[in-house]
């Protein structure tokens, strides 16, 4: 029961912080909905853990906590994979910039020397 209380308190504080961010225009509406949806779902699961048990059994998994772990791992893998792709795209951009700078530097340094 204590954990549920702590989590509910955390949820309230987060909600206030999120509202302030939205009021200051620091996040978009879709971002607000996503964050709100995620943490509300987390609160529901913490307060009513039996929900995950029913869902897990419906999906053919024995325990609710197993379902959360499986989903968590899948989300983390997906995130890591996407981050890697983003990193590759950023690298391509940095390389192109470096290339253009190298050629431009050469042209500037050697202009009029030919």
């Amino acid at each position: 029961m204590l954990f549920q209380l702590f989590f509910a308190l955390f949820y309230l504080i987060y909600l206030i912080a999120l509202s302030k961010k939205k009021l200051r225009g620091k996040i978009h509406f879709t971002e607000l909905l996503f964050r709100l949806g995620f943490w509300t779902l987390a609160l529901v699961v913490v307060v009513y853990p039996d929900i995950t048990v029913h869902l897990a059994q419906w999906m053919g998994i024995q325990r609710g906590v197993d379902l959360i772990v499986y989903v968590g791992i899948a989300v983390l893998f997906y995130h890591a994979f996407n981050q890697r792709l983003k990193h590759i795209r950023s690298s391509i951009t940095i390389t192109e910039l470096t290339r253009q700078m190298a050629i431009m530097e050469y042209r500037l340094t050697h202009s009029g020397k030919k």
Binding site: T95, T98, R99, M101, A102, I103
Partner: peptide, 15 residues
């Protein structure tokens, strides 16, 4: 020519 940061052999070849 000089890359201001190390980008790798493939990048240098393309440059």
């Amino acid at each position: 020519l000089r890359h201001c940061v190390n980008r790798g052999q493939g990048a240098a070849l393309q440059t």
